[in-house]
Structure formats: C-alpha cells, structure tokens
Simulated scan of single mutants.
Amino acid sequence: MRAIKQLRHDFIREFWRGLLVVWPIVSLLLLFMALLGLAVGELEGWPVGDGLYFSFVTGLTIGYGDLVPRLGLARCLAMLIGIAGIVMTGLIVAVGVHALRKVLEDQGIH
C-alpha cells in the first residue's frame, strides 16, 4: 500500500513539473480559445459569458451544447476552437504519459 501511495505522489510531482514546462503553450491556447469564443459570441449576438462558455465546451471537445453558431464564419472559428482544444488536450495527455513513464522507470517497473 505504501508503494502505491509513493508512486501516486511521484506521478503527481512529475506531472506538475511537466505541466510547468508546457504551461506557456497551454496558456496561449486557452487565451486563443477565449478570444475566438468572444468573436463567435459577438458574431452570433450572444452575451460575453455565452461566448466563453461556448468556446470551452467546444474546445474541450465536449461538442456543441445548447449554443450552436449559425453563421458560416462563426462555424469556421468554432473549428479553430476545436483544433486548439485538441492540441491542448494532447499536450496535457503527453505530459501525463511522460510523468507516468518516468516514475515507472525510476521505480524499476517497465
């Protein structure tokens, strides 16, 4: 039981260390997604909160929810939001895989 807790602790430490490395990229992607969401909201006549909500629902690849853009330009921007979300998710998953691999190698588990 102690070994599992130690592995978990080491994984979390390595994950945060890796996240600090990619944080500038992740934060730029988040900003990009927010700005695109505001643009979509402006085009569609939505309130600011709805534009941001739409951006992160779309960017986290949850998909369209209760807000759906009707204009062609807004739909193109939504595709860019989705791509940025996929890139961000991929970065975070890569950090997690790297952290797990490093912890397992350090423990001699292959």
Rank of each mutant, 00 (worst) to 15 (best):
W16R: 10
C76V: 09
A39G: 01
Q6H: 07
Y64H: 06
L77W: 02
Q6C: 01
V40N: 01
S55P: 02
Y53C: 01
R13T: 08
I62K: 11
V93E: 07
W46H: 04
I81F: 06
W23P: 00
L71S: 15
V95I: 15
I12G: 00
C76R: 09
Y64M: 05
V40T: 04
R75T: 03
A74P: 02
F15G: 01
T61I: 12
L35P: 02
G51N: 02
V57I: 11
W16G: 04
F11D: 00
A94G: 12
F11R: 00
L7V: 12
G72K: 09
G37S: 09
G72A: 12
A84Q: 09
S55K: 00
P24L: 08
G85C: 11
G85S: 13
F11L: 02
G45Q: 01
G49N: 11
R17L: 11
L91E: 08
L36F: 07
G90F: 10
A94R: 15
G90D: 07
Q6L: 08
L29A: 04
L35A: 15
G59K: 00
M33A: 11
L52W: 05
H9M: 00
R70E: 14
G41P: 06
A39K: 12
G85A: 13
D66H: 09
F56W: 08
E14H: 06
M33K: 06
V95P: 13
L31N: 07
G90S: 15
A94L: 13
L80P: 06
G96N: 09
T61G: 12
G72V: 05
L30V: 12
